[in-house]
């Protein structure tokens, strides 16, 4: 079972990295949160019986862990146990403009509240209202209301001169 799990996580680790990136600013915190999410996923893996999509299950646990877990604020700490390259925003993509825009997007998202970050992330991941409602625990109509508010807020945060957000 452990092998199946590690394979599953390795293939879908992008989800966890994205959650870590929007909830933690520094590498040490990201590494800690990554570990914590993996452990929570592992604990819950046995009870996961394919009732929902793998991604929905992973988002649910990752967001629950990121929002409810307590992490002491750390100064930039060198994480020695794990390689840290994977926590960085893409650095080999030749398109520098792409990188810059992505970094600005992450910065803007981090300025939102914890719940708003979860909502916008699920939106950006193209999740349906139904899946978002399932993960967040609110009704689909309220997902729509919340999402509209968050979109407006995000537009205000992202500098119009950089992106020309209308």
């Amino acid at each position: 079972m452990e092998q199946v799990f590690t394979k599953l996580i390795t293939e879908n680790q992008g989800i966890i990295h994205k959650v870590c990136n929007i909830y933690c600013k520094n590498e040490g915190d990201r590494a800690d949160l990554f570990q914590e999410i993996i452990l929570q996923l592992w604990k819950s893996y046995e009870s996961f019986q394919g009732r929902s999509k793998i991604s929905t299950w992973m988002y649910r646990i990752a967001l629950n862990t990121a929002i409810t877990s307590f992490r002491k604020q750390k100064k930039n700490k060198v994480q020695q146990q794990l390689s840290i390259q994977e926590f960085q925003i893409p650095d080999v993509r030749p398109d520098e403009d792409f990188e810059e825009k992505l970094a600005t997007l992450y910065q803007a998202i981090r300025q939102l509240s914890k719940v708003e970050r979860a909502v916008i992330m699920l939106y950006l991941e193209d999740k349906s209202y139904q899946e978002m409602a399932e993960i967040l625990g609110i009704s689909e109509s309220n997902v729509g209301v919340k999402l509209n508010r968050v979109k407006k807020k995000l537009k205000k945060i992202i500098k119009p001169e950089l992106y020309g957000v209308r």
């Binding site: 394979k7 990295h17 390689s83 650095d91 080999v92 992505l102």
Partner: peptide, 14 residues
């Protein structure tokens, strides 16, 4: 933009 990001570098191995 979000969906096209890639987690490059050393990804976590099994």
């Amino acid at each position: 933009l979000w969906q096209n990001q890639q987690l490059v570098g050393k990804a976590h191995s099994e």
